[in-house]
Every structure is written in structure tokens, then in C-alpha cells.
């Protein structure tokens, strides 16, 4: 049974393939603390201390947490896209089959 039309399912298929590839890679880069992605971390408050060592410790902890969190978030989104991909692929297949049988 086809819910989406052929165009929508094709669009979903393309976006989800792209999403899976890009998000998996971005997750890996976040996991390894890529500097290029440092600009795209969740915002956190500046540690409220004047002691340099303490400041750095708190700062690094925040950064590390942000990186790990984003890595997992990317992978979650990639998983969701994987599901979308299967759904769209099924829809695409269903559309093709129904158009062939007519």
C-alpha cells in the first residue's frame, strides 16, 4: 500500500540516504573532537572562576560533554534517517509496483 506519491517517496529516499551518510560522518567527527565543528557545539556558561586550572578543567569538561552529546545526537538523527530511508524505499517500491500492475 502506497501512502506517499512517487515524487515524495523519491525525495524522502534521496534526503535520507544523504542524511545517513553525512550524519554518520559528522557523528564520527564529533566523537573525535574535530576542531572544525567546535563552532557548532551547544552553548554553555563560562565557568565562573578566576583560578586558571579550575577554569580550564570546567571548560574542557563542558566542551567534552558537548562533543559527545552532539556525536550521539548525530547518530540518533542518522538512525531516524535510516528508518525514513526504509519507509521511503518501501513506498517507492510499492508505487513502482502499483504503476506497473495498472
Amino acid at each position: 500500500m502506497a501512502i506517499c506519491g512517487p515524487k515524495l517517496s523519491l525525495c524522502g529516499l534521496i534526503i535520507s540516504v544523504w542524511g545517513v551518510i553525512q550524519l554518520v560522518f559528522m557523528g564520527i567527527f564529533y566523537y573525535f573532537h574535530s576542531v572544525a565543528l567546535a563552532e557548532d557545539l551547544p552553548e554553555f556558561e563560562q565557568p565562573d572562576t578566576k583560578n586558571v586550572d579550575e577554569y580550564l578543567k570546567a571548560f574542557y569538561a563542558d566542551i567534552d560533554k558537548g562533543y559527545t552529546q552532539n556525536a550521539y545526537n548525530c547518530w540518533i538523527a542518522a538512525l531516524l534517517y535510516l528508518v525514513t530511508m526504509f519507509v521511503s524505499a518501501h513506498q517507492f517500491w510499492a508505487n513502482n509496483r502499483s504503476s506497473l500492475s495498472v
Binding site: I15, D40, Y72, I76, Y81
Partner: peptide, 29 residues
């Protein structure tokens, strides 16, 4: 990237996964 996808990456916590899922679709389109 900064106006769209960054918003998806800026979520704090686990909700970010779903947020990223939606915003990535926008960004890719």
C-alpha cells in the same frame, strides 16, 4: 550552515537527535 544546521546542532540533551533530524531535512532542501 550557521543559520540553519547550527540550530540543529545547538540543542542541549537528547532532544537534539530529533531536532537535528528535522533541521537537517530543511538544510538539505
Amino acid at each position: 550552515w550557521n543559520m540553519v544546521l547550527k540550530k540543529g546542532l545547538g540543542f542541549d540533551g537528547w532532544i537534539g537527535g530529533i531536532g537535528l533530524y528535522i533541521i537537517f531535512a530543511f538544510w538539505s532542501c
